[in-house]
Design a protein around this nucleic acid. Structure first.
Length: 240
DNA sequence: CGACTTTGACCCGCGC
DNA sequence: GCGCGGGTCAAAGTCG
């Protein structure tokens, strides 16, 4: 588990570093456009411009200032209808819709960690594989990752536990998608070793193993979980 | 009691 | 102009 966690965190940290900074998702609603221009990037159209200028400006914005859209796929249980993707941020659900192209409902989330954070997230099950949740992120967080100062705060009604870092992949023309398959163990990669010296890692693992194996409750719970995994033949995520 | 979720209604862009 | 569909709002309900 520790190795998986470290690997995922490294991967996602690298992904986030490579992300292109842009926010201000297109404001369609009247209320949004009336009281805030939403332009935090300094490319605001001049308000006194004529309609043609506005059009050209709009075109420019569409061409150059697309909101950063990224997509992430997370494998979960197909029976899990929560549509919750734990990426370390705190999300507030503000809507749910059943779209035409996909019978699964699509959930709409806003980042509630910072009131001014413009990031929105759409979560919907993959039409091909019901066990995969596809999360589409719009915009970029304008606040630090909430899991960093308090790695295991755990508050937030189970929406975010602050344990799995955010995963955003720039959705450019190639429409890249990253899949966080938390159901299967993966071999350690080189990135794991960045977390510390091998000696320290080994010491940490040994300490964790010895501590956990001394706990009979943990043993029984682990046995039950593993047996359930084999019996159900069903991917299990986010329950660890 | 405050924060959050649910869900029907509403808004608005788009195609015909 | 009209209808459809995606996205958002907001009142009511739920939970700790």
């Amino acid at each position: 588990m520790c190795e998986n966690y470290n690997e995922l965190r490294d991967r996602l940290t690298n992904i986030s570093k490579n992300s292109v900074v842009d926010n201000d998702a297109s404001r369609k609603r009247k209320a949004d456009s009336s009281n805030n221009n939403g332009n935090t990037d300094g490319t605001k159209c001049p308000s006194e411009s004529s309609s043609s200028d506005e059009d050209s400006c709009k075109k420019q914005r569409e061409e150059h200032i697309k909101p950063k859209i990224s997509r992430a796929s997370v494998r979960t249980e197909a029976s899990d209808t929560s549509l919750i993707v734990k990426d370390g941020y705190q999300w507030r659900k503000y809507g749910q819709k059943v779209t035409r192209d996909n019978p699964s409902p699509r959930a709409y989330f806003k980042c509630s960690f910072a009131p001014s954070c413009p990031v929105k997230k759409k979560v919907q099950r993959s039409i091909e594989d019901q066990s995969i949740l596809v999360a589409t992120y719009e915009g970029e967080h304008n606040h630090p990752h909430p899991s960093k100062p308090e790695p295991s705060s755990g508050s937030g009604r189970g929406v975010t536990l602050g344990t799995v870092p955010c995963s955003t992949t720039p959705l450019s023309s190639s429409a890249q998608t990253i899949t966080l398959d938390l159901t299967k163990p993966k071999p350690a990669t080189d990135s794991d070793r960045k977390m510390g010296t091998p000696q320290f890692q080994q010491y940490l693992v040994e300490q964790m193993a010895s501590t956990l194996t001394k706990d009979p409750n943990f043993k029984s719970a682990l046995a039950a979980a593993i047996s359930g995994q084999f019996l159900q033949q069903n991917p299990r995520t986010e329950k660890w």
